[in-house]
Write a protein that binds this DNA or RNA. Structure first.
Lengths: 304, 304
DNA sequence: TCTTCATGATCGAAAAAATCGATTATAAAC
DNA sequence: GTTTATAATCGATTTTTTCGATCATGAAGA
């Protein structure tokens, strides 16, 4: 079975069916009459069917030719649509952007980010996923995500990493806790032992442990929080103290509670918020744009 | 706005989206990997959009690439259908055949012809038009008809003419008409004057006039028939006599009436039934096939 | 009847493109 | 450290496309 080689030939046929005149049809295709003649002939040869009845006086479409022209019209229009589709999709910050965000960032950074994006780039549609860093990165590699918003340090040398800003860890405890008397505090061994952590998998757990100068810790399952919100609840209930990102505090995580916060003495432990993408991503420009939006939000958020 | 140049490139994209591997995709397209690489690159350049994310380890479709692949699939399938359509249509005696037939042939020849065609060529769909010769020929020239079944003599030098068989004219009159005593008769001057004719435009009118040795005749409008059937009715009503094609008699035109028929003395006036088509018709083979079918029917129809 | 005009087919040359084979580069696997 | 798998790249070759010129032919006009 032969197959169509060229869309141009279909265009020729279409043009002939409109003009019923080879010379004018050729003109409208910006080729010479001989080119069009040859092209149409080749199409007819490919299909081994006469599509156009012609002699030196008259040009007539055969019934098959008319039907083929109709089909050609629809094929060419689909091809045009395809081009138009990519033209629209290629616009920066438009189309669907699949963005992953870790749970210790999402509730605090996402609401203002989404709002700002909607305003700045109405063509952009965000498909969001909140998940642990490891899952996000594996989805990133698998092509199910375009970018991810995560916290460093984290091993991601195989990715494009765009660090955005540092997010300090603050100590959170109950009012009256004698350990939190000073304006800035150090994490002592004693405090480390009272430290409540998020459950395994959250990068913030590792960052907190690092701040406690402890690389690992046996997990007391019943004393681990599943989210920053539950962590706060546990602190308030007197289970211990916690290390919470400044970002969360800024966005009002402990508002309405009786807890107090203390920055840690310099060099204070921090995590670094970063935007990552596959090295081969076609959206490098969008990565920059998104980074700018998030940074702008960060600078506008009032400090503690 | 750029436009797609090649369907092959769409095929490449599709193949890559299936294999997620350039080398194997290339194999399945029967080209080398370098060819496929170049083709895909050109497609991406044409669309100025990354469709496939790739490095030396992994191949991933971009979201746009996936959508484009989907569209490519539908375009390629439409192209395939187009080819398949012509392949089917090009089969001899298939598709739509637009056939014109004059009113003095249609009622007699068409029923058995259609029946035979349906049996012999079930793929063939007849689009029939019953009309005067002049109208049929002009539609033929205009490409609205593929063939016509007419009666000669008629000026049609610009057409392919396939004479089928001669159709003698018989005299029809009332039983007891003394002019019709002999087994074969001559058209006398007196008979000519009683001759009932079809209205202007029917070629049979001219053929009858020729048999009467009269080239023209003033039309007595109220004494002209609009069809052979009405002509017969008028004869029966005693308005005169008529010249009727043998074909009509064979198919039972005067069955049930009291009329009698007489052949004319040799050389008896005849019309010649012929199949005509544009010189440039792509259905010359079908013309022959149709001619054979009609001839076969004619030989099987019992003589008078 | 002869000439001119309009038109599609055809041919050879030139230009453009597609394709291939070989090579390179690179990261992963062993 | 070597091998393997893979896509990009390059130059040469082949194939295709395009053009311009010419031919052939029927119609229209003189």
């Amino acid at each position: 079975m032969p197959s169509l080689s060229s869309l141009k030939q279909l265009q020729y046929l279409l043009s002939v069916s409109e003009h019923l005149n080879f010379t004018r049809a050729a003109e409208s295709c910006f080729v010479t009459q001989s080119t069009l003649s040859a092209g149409l002939k080749e199409l007819e040869d490919t299909l081994s069917t006469r599509l156009v009845e012609r002699d030196r006086q008259t040009v007539l479409m055969t019934p098959v030719g008319l039907e083929v022209a109709q089909r050609a019209r629809s094929i060419l229009s689909a091809a045009k649509d395809l081009v138009a589709f990519t033209a629209e999709a290629q616009a920066p910050m438009s189309g669907i952007l699949r963005l992953g965000v870790i749970p210790t960032i999402a509730p605090f950074l996402l609401p203002p980010t989404v709002k700002a994006l909607r305003k700045a780039y109405p063509q952009l549609r965000l498909a969001l996923r909140e998940d642990l860093t490891a899952n996000l990165l594996s989805r990133l590699e698998g092509g199910q995500l375009d970018m991810a918003l995560i916290a460093l340090p984290y091993e991601c040398s195989h990715l494009i990493v765009k660090p955005l800003f540092d997010d300090a860890l603050w100590l959170v405890g109950r009012k009256g806790d004698t350990q939190l008397k000073a304006r800035t505090v150090n994490v002592t061994q004693a405090m480390s032992e009272q430290m409540l952590l998020l459950e395994e998998g959250h990068c913030l757990r590792e960052h907190a442990l690092y701040a406690c100068h402890a690389s690992t810790r046996a997990s007391h399952n019943d004393l681990e929080a599943t989210s920053l919100l539950t962590l706060i609840q546990m602190i308030e209930s007197g289970f211990g103290i916690g290390l919470v990102p400044e970002m969360a505090l800024r966005s009002g995580l402990i508002k309405g509670s009786t807890l107090i916060t203390r920055p840690l003495t310099k060099p204070s432990p921090t995590r670094t918020i970063a935007l990552v993408a596959r090295r081969s991503t076609p959206r490098q420009a969008d990565l920059e744009s998104l980074a700018q939006v998030i940074l702008h939000i960060q600078t506008k958020t009032p400090a503690l």
